[in-house]
Design a protein around this nucleic acid. Structure first.
Lengths: 88, 88
DNA sequence: TATTTGTATGCGCATATATGCATATGAGAA
DNA sequence: TTCTCATATGCATATATGCGCATACAAATA
């Protein structure tokens, strides 16, 4: 169902922690550690949130040696955040 | 915090039931009963969801005699749904 | 006032979600 | 291989959420 998929996108973005991560990635991509420092959360926590974001198709990954670089999967993610901020 | 408000918008939209209600309202406004019939849910349930949507600034209300007419508070709500569907 | 209709709220339960911790997996270096 | 570093996963627990039901509130009418 189309509804379900859209809901999953919003579900991924409804958590302040994940929204914070997305906003960080909107500025610059980075690995799990860096993201963790940026948003003030521990590594497993960030990793779990990133998984949710990835499953929802909001971020993509790229291995770089030992690290995994995360970045926004779609420019439209920025649009969603921008509109939500404008409404709220 | 700006983040919090945006998160509340997404939190309101992440529930399939509420998304369904928003989509119904995108087509035509209506009172609680009508919305309930449209989405196949009972009155208290719809009423609770509408409250969440209203608190998030996604719908507005207008008393019409005994009834309360709900409609989208902002055209941008449609945009959010459209983008989320496109990403998901 | 009492009654009817429409809407909102409070409560209890079942389920879902986030979090921290410990630990497993993956990748490169010695 | 063994040793780190970086990331992912499993588990237990606390919190949050949605749901149905009963009921309270609001508005119009008799």
């Amino acid at each position: 169902m189309r509804n379900e998929k859209a809901a999953r996108v919003f579900l991924a973005m409804c958590e302040p922690a994940r929204l914070q991560i997305l906003q960080k990635l909107a500025k610059s991509k980075g690995c799990v550690q860096e993201i963790g420092k940026s948003v003030g959360r521990n590594q497993p926590n960030v990793s779990q949130h990133l998984r949710v974001l990835k499953d929802a198709g909001l971020v993509k990954t790229k291995r770089e040696g030992k690290r995994v670089c995360y970045s926004l999967a779609d420019e439209r993610v920025k649009m969603l955040i921008g509109i939500a901020e404008a409404i709220g």
